[in-house]
Write a protein that binds this DNA or RNA. Sequence first.
RNA 1: AUAGAAUACCGGGCAAUUGCUACCUCGAAUAAAUUGAGGGAGAGGAAAGUCCGAACUUCAAAGAACAGGGUGCCGGUUAAUGACCGGGUAUUCCAUUGGAAUAACUGAAAGUGCCACAGAAAAUAUACCGCCCCGACUUGUUGGGGUAAGGGUGAAAAGGCGAGGUAAGAGCUCACCGCCUCGAUAGUAAUAUCGGGGGCACGGCAAACCACACCCGAAGCAAGGUCAAGUAGAAAAAUCGUUCUCCUUUUCGGAGAGGAGAGUUGUUCGCUCGAAGUGUCUUCUGUGACUGCGAUUUUUGGGUAGACCGCUGGAUUCCGAUGGUAACAUCGGAGCAAGAUAAAUAAUUGCCAUCCCCUGAAUAAAAUUCAGAGGACAACAGAAUUCGGCUUACAGGUUUUCUAUCAGU
RNA 2: GCACCCGUAGCUUAAUUGGAUAGAGCAUCUGACUACGGAUCAGAAGGUUGAAGGUUCGAGUCCUUCCGGGUGUA
Length: 135
Amino acid sequence: MKTFSLSKNERIKEKKIFDQLFKSGKTVLLKNNSLKIIYLTEKSDKTCVKIAVGISKKVGNSVWRNRLKRLIRNSYRLNKLNLIEMAKQKRMRIYILFSPINLNQSSSPKLKYFEIENQVVSLLESVRKKLDSFS
RNA sequence: AUAGAAUACCGGGCAAUUGCUACCUCGAAUAAAUUGAGGGAGAGGAAAGUCCGAACUUCAAAGAACAGGGUGCCGGUUAAUGACCGGGUAUUCCAUUGGAAUAACUGAAAGUGCCACAGAAAAUAUACCGCCCCGACUUGUUGGGGUAAGGGUGAAAAGGCGAGGUAAGAGCUCACCGCCUCGAUAGUAAUAUCGGGGGCACGGCAAACCACACCCGAAGCAAGGUCAAGUAGAAAAAUCGUUCUCCUUUUCGGAGAGGAGAGUUGUUCGCUCGAAGUGUCUUCUGUGACUGCGAUUUUUGGGUAGACCGCUGGAUUCCGAUGGUAACAUCGGAGCAAGAUAAAUAAUUGCCAUCCCCUGAAUAAAAUUCAGAGGACAACAGAAUUCGGCUUACAGGUUUUCUAUCAGU
RNA sequence: GCACCCGUAGCUUAAUUGGAUAGAGCAUCUGACUACGGAUCAGAAGGUUGAAGGUUCGAGUCCUUCCGGGUGUA
């Protein structure tokens, strides 16, 4: 498998998983409240990490939403290795949903890649710490 | 040259690295899902709004009338349109007899309706102030009559204007204009021009109802089809139907009529489809009750929302020729150019191009040019069955035309 | 995606077939009553009828185009 890829198998596509995430997932916020992560774990021998990006229609127009989604995905696939290693060690499946909170088009019309990447990295780190301490 | 308006077009480019989507080629492995390498491909002028028009699919075939909806000068283009092109007419503007822009631009003399307030009167006309005549008397008031020129009201006042005429006036009469009507000429037509006659009757609103002419069957790719999966062919209530004849007959069965109801997205007609048809009791041979069966409607509960086809080669794009004032058509040549589905088409870096700002140099200054450093990296905006239009949003740049100002010949 | 509906004061709503200043209730503010507050009584303010054009003498109402919000549909 390629190291920095993000194929269809690493994305959430099933409606059931989305329902479970919204019903019983745990949220992690950033300090400036721009992004959040909803995550869910389950024990399984077939380890995998799947992500999705959920953006409300009221946040901005389709061009802006597409760009945010692509930036989040791109920064995830460049920084996902640690999380996958941990999932292999602990033998669990991890589902992650990214979502913007206070971020919208009127407040920040131009999105910059490095800001998004920093936020994604710190979010992934905090998720990893929580999982570590939990088990 | 600068500024403005219109018009047609473009909507950053190249390279590297890391990815995404489907396809092709060569491999690996397998029951299958899969996976490795390479290759070329991958958002727009509006992809948007969903305002019109079609293709395509289903509703048996897509029938008729009414209802309902749409359009509305004339001719053409088109698969089709409410779009486009050409012409006419009206209005506005500039100018001075031409030019430009805009227009839901049929009918108010088929009928119905509305026209608040004000005003005498808002459509069968009428008379407040006036003007004029006659009578009465207290000589400036009143009674009767004529009139619609002037005033006043209003968004709108009953043909306009001038002359004659008159007590005062009035299409009462006449000229010109307008209107109605008949004819001729030009034009395919809308319409225009000219001539004769009438003698004023005909206010506005049809984006009020309506009339006339033409057009429209309905729903939409979540259409529709195939496969898989499914505690699914679930329960309750109401209504209706469960009828005849013939053939072969032990039975089973077959044919015909009838048939509740369903479809035809409003109604009617027409058309099409069309299930069950059992048993028991009662009873004066037919009726009633119950049960079973079937159909429809309503309610409750539950399941799946996966894969493939539709899905991209088409009223197709580009170039040229011919015809046409033009929209466009015909012919010839070349080309194939996204197909996702929790939804791909991206991210970073470098160079170039573009724009902004600063510093230095050239020149007396501005403007301009060159060099260096820094910043922005663009606007509007993301395919979702596919096309033709319309509408709306839009940084910057290019082409052509027109207008204004300045400079030169 | 496709199809469709609705916008009136801060909130909930009226407005006859186009006719005048867009009317109510709650909330808000001011005053009265009270030792103070509530309740009550009296009064005031608050609307370019979502926006822009058009038809009309006159548009909340009729027509067109935008803006915002919502619904249905396997």
